[in-house]
């Protein structure tokens, strides 16, 4: 088991007016699993992912990564986690620094002094070429800036950056929601390919169960900060047991055959 969470709770707001974003979530992720985390906006998907990634501290509950309790650990002791777990965010227009060249963006994790200690000696140039090729970007992309690329290509850059320090877990937070439907397929194919080839564990956050079903083997459905349903992707998709999951399935956009 690579990730485990127990009783994860996160409350925002003030003591007088607390807002519970996450309420007692238990989760277990096996190595190589492709887990989809679905729910509406505000259901706690991103909060959960931030806690699992050690980017935020839970109000209550614990998180283990690869057997190590990472709850409340100081940044200096999260070196292993930082290189082993990488995140691809929703909107590549805001997740890539517009003033940095693509080559610098992709190799930045390798230049981090903390991360470098946790990594085997890697040659940044070689690694850059490797990951650019892996995500299907031409080698000369390294010398260009993010704004010279389309939305889909920018998401490839973000994925290349995530892969540069050879993570074991890839977290993708709504990675295709900001993209055209026609570009969506390319990015999903790429993620699926990379996860297979590099033996990654995938946490895929989405509000679109149709995409999750395609990419993931298992699913947890979040609602108002709680897990309301979990199971294999096929099971939840074909036989949702809660009304909420049923509504999510029904809302998947489909082409209407003929409009009368």
């Amino acid at each position: 088991m690579i990730l485990r969470a127990q009783g994860l709770t996160r409350t925002f707001g003030t003591a007088k007016r607390p807002v519970a974003a996450l309420r007692g979530v238990d989760l277990e992720v096996e190595r190589g699993q492709r887990l989809g985390i679905v729910g509406e906006s505000g259901s706690g998907k991103t909060t959960l992912v931030k806690l699992l990634a050690g980017l935020d501290r839970p109000t209550a509950g614990r998180v283990w990564f690869d057997g190590l309790d990472i709850t409340g650990l100081p940044e200096s002791r999260l070196v292993g986690l930082r290189s082993s777990l990488q995140i691809v965010f929703q909107d590549p227009r805001s997740s890539l620094d517009p003033r940095m060249k693509v080559g610098d963006i992709v190799t930045e994790p390798l230049r981090s002094r903390r991360l470098r200690r946790g990594l085997d000696a890697v040659d940044p140039h070689r690694r850059l070429a490797e990951v650019l090729e892996a995500v299907g970007l031409p080698a000369d992309s390294a010398e260009r800036y993010p704004h010279e690329f389309s939305g889909g290509q920018r998401q490839r850059i973000a994925i290349a950056r995530a892969l540069s320090c050879q993570p074991q877990v890839l977290v993708a937070d709504e990675p295709v929601s900001a993209l055209d439907v026609s570009v969506r397929a390319q990015v999903i194919n790429l993620l699926s390919d990379l996860v297979d080839r590099q033996g990654l564990t995938l946490l895929f956050v989405s509000h679109d169960l149709g995409v999750v079903r395609h990419l993931c083997d298992s699913v947890v459905v979040l609602r108002a900060g709680q897990v309301v349903e979990r199971g294999s992707a096929a099971e939840v998709f074909e036989h949702p047991s809660t009304d909420y999951a049923k509504a999510l399935v029904a809302a998947i956009p489909r082409i209407k055959q003929s409009k009368a």
């Binding site: 439907v181 026609s182 397929a185 194919n189 699926s192 149709g210």
Partner: peptide, 21 residues
């Protein structure tokens, strides 16, 4: 035809490569 194919996520068995434009 390419646009239509990319929109038909439901026609592709899960896990298989999706068609692109």
């Amino acid at each position: 035809a390419g646009l239509v194919a990319t929109a038909r996520l439901d026609l592709v068995p899960p896990g298989q490569r999706l068609p692109t434009v």
